[in-house]
Amino acid sequence: MIKHLRSAADLDAATATLILDTAAEMAALSGREVKKLPALRGRTVVNLFYEDSTRTRISFEAAAKRLSADVINFSAKGSSVSKGESLKDTALTLQAMGADAVVIRHSASGAPHRLANWVEGSVVNAGDGTHEHPTQALLDAYTMRSRLGRLDGLKVAIVGDVLHSRVARSNVLLLTTLGAQVTVVGPPTLIPLEVGAALSDKTQVSYDLDAVLPESDVVMMLRVQTERMQDSYFPSAREYSRRYGLDVPRLKRLPEHAIVMHPGPMNRGMEIAPEVADSPRSTIVEQVANGVSVRMAVLYLLLGGK
């Protein structure tokens, strides 16, 4: 088993599949009256969050607690971080406290790689800058597999601000590893250069959402920050929404079995219409539930739980 999960590229197909299979076993447990497993009893998991992300932190916290690990939440606010302590010194502190795993969310791309130099335990990337968010990709893959029964050969459209999206990067890497066919869709200003060469040469690029939809088994809508408008990535929220938003007419262009995903938090009415978000095809709430199972599987496997 790998030691760290810093990038979805750390996972080969066998390892990724093992995580998804383990997550399925974890999910079966959540139906039981007593949800807790003793697997990580006596182990310490630190949630080191330099960015506010209540949903991701809670998800990791629930995952660790269901495995009986001791959980320490270390957030940038109200800690030594706000006094300007360096990542290295924070890492050495966590090391001294005997952290077996550090789950890190950070606004700087690559912070988990840096952290892994300074702690002996496992490092789990819970989102770093505009780089990656591998557990989100795992839970997305898990959701697709449970809804559609497979990943191999699945056609997945990832739509929106791919340039700044850590969710998109991790998903492209993981999904292509697992045999899916990924198309990234968005205005050219928000598609990173050489995305195919960078992530997977099987990745396709399209600027035309309407053309891609009829061919898609999965549409994953990315959050688009309205600040991007100020930086001329697109002219206005309205124009963005018209060209790349998933509304009801566009939903109808999808094949009947196709599902709609969103990593959240959503801008309802911007990249996704409320009717679409709340439709039976939407997996958005399921994704949250699956997040706990997948993160349980990741912690369990990385820490060699018994």
């Binding site: 791309s109 690559g110 770093d128 780089h131 850590r166 250069l193 050489e194 960078a198 992530l199």
Partner: peptide
């Protein structure tokens, strides 16, 4: 700016 910056998210 190129392939590597895209991969690294920098």
């Amino acid at each position: 700016e190129g392939e590597v910056s895209t991969r690294l998210g920098l």
